[in-house]
Amino acid sequence: MNNNLYNYILGIADNSLILGQRLGELTGHGPSLETDIACTNISLDLFGQVRSYFQYAAKLANDGRTEDDIAMLRKENEYRNVLLVEQPNTNFAYTIGRQFLFDVYHLAFLTELEKSKDLTLSAIAKKCIKEVRYHERFSSDWVKRLGDGTEESNKKMQESIDDLWTYTDELFHQTEADKAMVLEGIGLDITQLKQAYYAKVTDFLEEATLKVPDSKYFQKGGKKGIHAEHMGYILAELQFMQRAYPNMEW
């Protein structure tokens, strides 16, 4: 098995997995029926993507593990998602801020991944782009509404961006698997996405009358399996059934 390819897929899929899980917490509790439906729908898209990635990873591993084993039976330090996606739904501004900061990256990432010479990854990326384009529209529209809405919403949205900003830099850190995949023409050089990302995010934030944080201090670790304290609780729910009732089919 190509270990680097396997790890590369996990690195991509774990972001969707954990973000989807976070959004799934909100179903039934949204600020309006329309936003409730939209967030549930984004979660649904993300888990659909996760299934495609993990089915491919399971096929590559070819050791009897299923998509669910890969999704739900790893130890915390084996998950490769960035810290950004595990941040909690403190309020709707945080949910939107997290989504927005991830979506802009995600769309740029998939647009490049579609060019991969790995046909499976390219096909998955092609399917995901359509969904993620909508996610980005949804989250950036809400950044504008909240940023340029009322004084209260502006304050909350600014607070969310200020707090979440520290997790953006990690999006562009290369893992060993990333580097190996770039060499093989399967993966993309994420460091190349950074400049355009911050330019686009800046445009959106300025349009939303929000200040672009100037902090140069960033958090990292998720990609290496060193997560925030939130992660254990996320996994406690995600893995609950598989841990409590092992080796069963559902």
């Binding site: 917490e25 029926l33 979660s43 993990f54 999704a71």
Partner: peptide, 22 residues
């Protein structure tokens, strides 16, 4: 939703609850 036992069941449950909202 957060505790569904498999990805397939999770996706189906999300879709179902979304239908109800609809």
């Amino acid at each position: 939703i957060t505790r569904a036992p498999s990805l397939r069941r999770k996706v189906a449950l999300l879709a179902k609850v979304q239908d109800e909202a609809g």
